[in-house]
Design a protein around this nucleic acid. Sequence first.
DNA 1: CGCTTGCTTGGAGTGCACTCCAAGTCTCTA
DNA 2: TAGAGACTTGGAGTGCACTCCAAGCAAGCG
Lengths: 164, 164
Amino acid sequence: MTVTATDAVVAAAETAVADQEPARLARCRGPVLHPRPTGRDQYTISEVAEHTGLSAHTLRWYERIGLMPHVDRTHTGQRRFSNRDLDWLDLVTKLRLTGMPVADMVRYAELVREGEHTFAEREELLTAHRADVRERIAELQDTLRVLDYKIDAYADARRASEGV
Amino acid sequence: MTVTATDAVVAAAETAVADQEPARLARCRGPVLHPRPTGRDQYTISEVAEHTGLSAHTLRWYERIGLMPHVDRTHTGQRRFSNRDLDWLDLVTKLRLTGMPVADMVRYAELVREGEHTFAEREELLTAHRADVRERIAELQDTLRVLDYKIDAYADARRASEGV
DNA sequence: CGCTTGCTTGGAGTGCACTCCAAGTCTCTA
DNA sequence: TAGAGACTTGGAGTGCACTCCAAGCAAGCG
């Protein structure tokens, strides 16, 4: 497989998001547990597992079902993940945490592999998922109100019985 | 099974949340699709399925695994759900939508059956779940930012190619 | 009375997303 | 160079939350 100009453009687009993300979101999180070592572009499967929190099993399974772009191999066939692979896994992990079905992520991965002419469909897919995510946030906040109410009720009951 | 004073108190506490909820949350939703008919306290399983969006299979299964309080039966053994059952199902549905495992909901149902002395543990259980929900909202909002960024990028690409 | 439709049960089946296994190969450290 | 430990594969197994099935009972209608 050769790397075409189109591939490069797509890859750049794909990578840009992950690249700019840590900076934007840094304030939301504590220190990253397993910072990516700088100046390296080769990771064993267990290093990637450690870094992403996915199991090595899951990483192999992702590759089997077409959710990973082709991962480099050593001359003896062992996987060597690149920083770009890690970027991709960061995105996949985010989408997974927001409940996107694996089948949809595989579809998205296919579109990415197919090149630039799938931009429109990718945008559609992500837009649909964004609507989902927004709905789910609303549901969660809905439930949060109920939880607050009930927890308050139980706390009141506790205080009343302790205070007597 | 007799209804004790404790049961009544607990039931009132359980019901209160569901009762006050539609009013509070009405602004967030369109018209309710299947409003509960007034002046009725007897529903067949298919009516409840229609109302809650759960399947009749699922309702029977909820009862089997102890997620429903005992449901009344006709003299021939058919289920007749009460308004209180519907209130309970509303809560269960909310908790389920926010990803509470069924096992945890069953545990909560048990605590409710056991009476007032389990208030503290119920509060704990709900508080733990609330923390979960908050974390998940944060995750979703995190991903929302990434989605916005990527969708924008694709939209820009589309506009650029159309505008040339 | 027969027909249709709805309800009952325990148990089996489904789909998703992993998760593990067995048997063999490779890499690293002493 | 020997041994520990990490890596490989296809396929089987797991856990969750339903989802359906078969066989039978019950209610309402023409």
